[in-house]
């Protein structure tokens, strides 16, 4: 088990966002966290990363409780891919990727040639080597997201946490980022890398053949392989409107929300919003 969380209560200060959450991530696995806005996905991630303390329960990385680990030790076990953002200063993309090497340097250390090579290799692996000397703050959202994924690869961790990696990306970029996530997860050669990501698109869970954690109001509503956990019933219950899971001719699953029945569900979405 790369990561285990048991009986986790999450939230800020005295405000609990979620209760009694238990999950585990195995080596080489992709776990997809789904749920409506405000259900606690980001808070859960921050707790798993040790950025905010758990209000109850435990998080363990490779068997060690996260609360007992120093930041650098955590950063050598989990990498975090935040949503693409604009930094205040115009760093080169390679420098941003190079920051992924920080946990492997001493407190006063500087990245050396080996670190630069590792950062560049991570960019090459994602097919963005040509962005290396470009100004990160001027890249498109999709390019930035790939640079941040490259940074997580350069961090060389067995587990990567991605917070809505496809949010705010256009159709083509979403597909590209998704393909890269599928490519870097799993047992490729000698490395076994797990990915846990959140998304608003249940289709992606099918596309990635991920294990799904379906979250509602701070609790796991359903979990398991995508075709088990994501059904008409579970999706309809979690998102508060009729959803049908259909199979396309090519065998892919797609989740289709009912738009026609809007009038009958207006009360439901009004109550939950």
């Amino acid at each position: 088990m790369m990561l285990t969380a048991q009986g986790l209560d999450i939230g800020y200060g005295t405000r609990r966002v979620g209760r009694g959450l238990s999950l585990g991530v195995d080596a080489g696995e992709i776990v997809c966290l789904l749920g409506p806005n405000g259900c606690g996905k980001t808070t859960l991630f921050r707790t798993l990363l040790g950025l905010i303390p758990a209000l109850g329960g435990t998080v363990a990385l490779a068997g060690q409780p996260i609360a007992a680990l120093r930041r650098a030790e955590i950063a050598r076990r989990i990498a975090y891919v935040p949503q693409a953002h604009a930094p205040p200063f115009p760093f080169e993309a390679l420098d941003v990727v190079l920051m992924g090497r920080t946990a492997r340097l001493g407190v006063f250390g500087q990245p050396g040639n080996a670190d630069r090579a590792a950062a560049f290799a991570a960019m090459e692996r994602l097919g963005i080597a040509d962005l290396a000397d470009r100004d990160y703050s001027r890249l498109s959202g999709g390019q930035r997201q790939l640079v941040l994924i490259a940074r997580a690869l350069a961090q060389e961790t067995p587990l990567i946490v991605m917070d809505e990696p496809t949010a705010s990306l256009d159709f083509g970029n979403q597909a590209q980022v998704l393909a890269q996530i599928a490519a870097i997860a799993g047992a490729a050669g000698t490395e076994e890398r797990s990915v846990i990501l959140s998304t608003h698109d249940p289709d992606q869970a099918f596309a990635l053949n991920a294990r799904v954690m379906l979250m509602k109001d701070g609790q796991f509503h359903a979990e398991g392989p995508a075709d088990h956990a994501l059904t008409d019933e579970t999706l309809s219950a979690v998102y508060g409107l009729p959803v049908a899971v259909e199979k396309t001719e090519s065998g892919r699953h797609v989740c289709v929300p009912s738009i026609a029945a809007r009038s009958s569900t207006a009360g439901v979405s009004g109550a939950s919003g």
């Binding site: 990363l49 950025l51 930041r71 990498a79 975090y80 420098d95 006063f108 990245p111």
Partner: peptide, 24 residues
Amino acid sequence: ALLRWRVNVLSLGDEEASSLGVEA
């Protein structure tokens, strides 16, 4: 001068710097 690399990482914000291994 000694912390110059960590200052770069810190300019990404506390949360990211922490996730990259810096005691922010």
